[in-house]
Deep mutational scan, measured.
Amino acid sequence: MTDQQAEARSYLSEEMIAEFKAAFDMFDADGGGDISVKELGTVMRMLGQTPTKEELDAIIEEVDEDGSGTIDFEEFLVMMVRQ
């Protein structure tokens, strides 16, 4: 866990972390443990947004600390705390 990830967790109660985990699992449609650009786009479109591929890439790049091209749960928490 990076310093950013530990800091993000410090702002959240266990209840909030559990709620974010449920949301993360909804995004992680294939159950792979991370959110891909495609999965992020699908959920955002379900919520009425129309992000471009470039916008989706930028969202993932902003929090993808390990350079995997996807968002894992710890990175997702950082993203949610920043919102």
Rank of each mutant, 00 (worst) to 15 (best):
M1Q: 03
M1V: 10
M1G: 09
T2R: 14
T2E: 11
D3T: 09
D3N: 15
D3K: 13
Q4Y: 10
Q5T: 03
A6M: 10
R9Q: 09
R9F: 10
Y11S: 12
L12E: 02
L12S: 01
L12G: 03
E14R: 07
E14W: 02
E14M: 07
E15H: 08
E15M: 15
M16K: 12
M16D: 07
M16Q: 12
M16A: 13
M16C: 07
M16E: 14
I17G: 01
A18I: 15
A18H: 03
E19N: 07
F20A: 13
K21E: 05
K21H: 15
A22E: 08
A23F: 15
A23N: 03
F24E: 01
F24S: 00
D25K: 11
M26D: 09
M26P: 05
M26K: 13
F27V: 08
F27E: 04
D28N: 05
D28K: 15
D28S: 07
A29M: 10
A29W: 05
G31N: 14
G33K: 02
G33E: 05
G33N: 02
D34P: 02
D34L: 14
S36P: 13
S36Q: 09
S36T: 13
V37T: 14
K38N: 02
K38Q: 10
E39S: 12
E39I: 02
L40V: 11
L40R: 00
L40T: 04
L40W: 00
L40D: 01
G41N: 08
T42F: 03
T42W: 04
M44S: 03
M44I: 05
M44A: 03
M46S: 14
Q49A: 15
Q49G: 11
T50F: 11
T50C: 15
T50W: 06
P51A: 09
K53Q: 15
K53D: 11
K53M: 07
L56W: 03
L56E: 06
L56S: 02
D57S: 12
A58S: 10
A58Q: 11
I59S: 02
I60G: 06
E61H: 08
E61L: 10
E62W: 15
D64F: 04
S68H: 05
S68Y: 07
G69H: 10
G69Q: 12
G69N: 09
I71G: 00
I71R: 00
D72C: 13
F73R: 03
E74K: 02
E75F: 03
E75H: 10
F76N: 00
F76K: 00
F76S: 00
L77N: 01
V78M: 11
V78H: 15
V78C: 10
M79N: 02
